[in-house]
Design a protein around this nucleic acid. Structure first.
Lengths: 136, 136
DNA sequence: TTCGATGCAAATAGTTTGCATTCTA
DNA sequence: TAGAATGCAAACTATTTGCATCGAA
């Protein structure tokens, strides 16, 4: 938490209640939160942080490498601390999210690198499919 | 093309100029077209097919299994005939799209099935990363 | 006191929906 | 001519931006 604030400051940024609150939510550990979710959590204590401010805070934190977002199929982007990533499986039928260890796609990544010079970022998107329950 | 129209008819649907036009575009072979793209192509001949009609045509064709769409990172969904799929690599930096054979992720799919009962649909989303050019 | 951050409203992109109208079968 | 499909406008979701104002350093 202190590190995050220090990074913001080091970048010439300022520590505002909104930024502190966004950082706290993320450090709090709840995963897969959308910007809207985060705004909702914050608005208990700070009733008029706007969603756009949350987006701007997240953008600032992402630029510093503190935060990352994941695309889960259709819905909004989900944000989390950069050091808490993993690979996601998302069921298209029921929306269930399965987490895999971050190195789950390392083999694939190496193959794509060797064959196409492509640096896979396997934690930046979910793998879509159908979960065991929904497969009938 | 005739097969597609027959399927629509068999489903109790009707063959309209708009549907015929959407099907023709897709059969035409151009890949990675968004709904907006398709509407644009059609509007040459049929000036007032609305984008919503295109979405509804695509929805109908998708329900029949004729069409599929792919999520390419941020942008709009891209539509193509269901039998023309492949795996996509998308460069987050320059947007370049690399196509892999449809079975490129079969190994991964089998592993996820065995380990989690998860049926991967590896052609329904792009794998994000950075292409050889953009890696500096 | 300065310039970065915020709030709010409005713009944007992509997609969906309501409803009266049109046209296929 | 019944009901499926369309056109248009409006609603919606996710996100971004403009601009005047506020406040951290």
């Amino acid at each position: 938490m202190d590190e995050i604030l220090a990074l913001l400051r080091a970048d010439g940024g300022r520590i505002t209640p909104a930024r502190r609150a966004v950082a706290e939510i993320l450090v709090g550990g709840e995963e897969h939160l959308s910007a809207e979710d985060i705004a909702g959590r914050i608005q208990g204590a700070l009733p008029d942080v706007s969603v756009s401010t949350v987006y701007r805070c997240l953008e600032a934190l992402e630029k510093l490498g503190v935060v990352e977002h994941v695309h889960l199929g259709h819905g909004p982007s989900r944000y989390h601390l950069a050091d808490r990533h993993h690979v996601h499986l998302l069921c298209r039928a029921c929306g269930q999210l399965i987490e895999l260890p971050p190195d789950a796609l390392d083999g694939l990544g190496e193959r794509l690198d060797a064959d196409h010079g492509f640096a896979l970022e396997p934690r930046h998107f979910a793998l879509l499919g159908t979960c065991a329950n929904c497969r009938g």
